[in-house]
Amino acid sequence: MPSYSTDRRGALKIISAIGATCAYPYSSDELYGQTVEHHHENAPAAPLPDKPAFFNEADFGIIARIADLIIPQTSTPGAIAAGVPLYIDSVISRNKPQQQLAAEGIEWLAKKNFAELSESDQLAILQPLCDAADAGDLKSRPVQFFQMLKNLAVDGYYTSQIGLIRELGYSGNTAMAEFPTCEHEH
């Protein structure tokens, strides 16, 4: 059965959410070559691999830790829960220049005993890299390394079910009987 809900102004009639089956508001059974039921398929997430394809366990731990610091768990799940480290691993496993940059970055961090440090000490290392990347100052390899990981973490998180739907509240890909009229004063 289609489920109906209305927004706060009652103007918007959502006929279905993702995965629900909806009925068109037409009596005709001659809709383009199909029945009046229009089905938006369920969208299960692709399963993640069990283990990284490229990084060894220690290096993968560092990658995962950085992803976790860039997008931590807050009131919503963060990068780890969204499987972002495995996404990063899968992208880098297909890209030679990224592999080289990752190796250099991990070695640079290893010299600072990054994995053993407290969170505040880890952030003290990463924050200047982040600031430099934000300022567009990409001369140093560690900054390039950080920017690569931030870009990949952001891509991986906000294209995940957790990031896109739970965190951001994406609610498109639905069937509406009519498009809501905006009644704000602009």
Binding site: L69, I70, I71, P72, T74, T76, G78, L123, L126, Q127, C130, D134, K150, N151, V154, D155, Y158, T159, G163, L164, E167, L168
Partner: peptide, 15 residues
């Protein structure tokens, strides 16, 4: 959400 790459910072405030 590709534009999210250009949001400055990291951590909770970034999110």
């Amino acid at each position: 959400v590709g534009w999210a790459r250009s949001i400055k910072g990291m951590g909770k405030s970034f999110k």
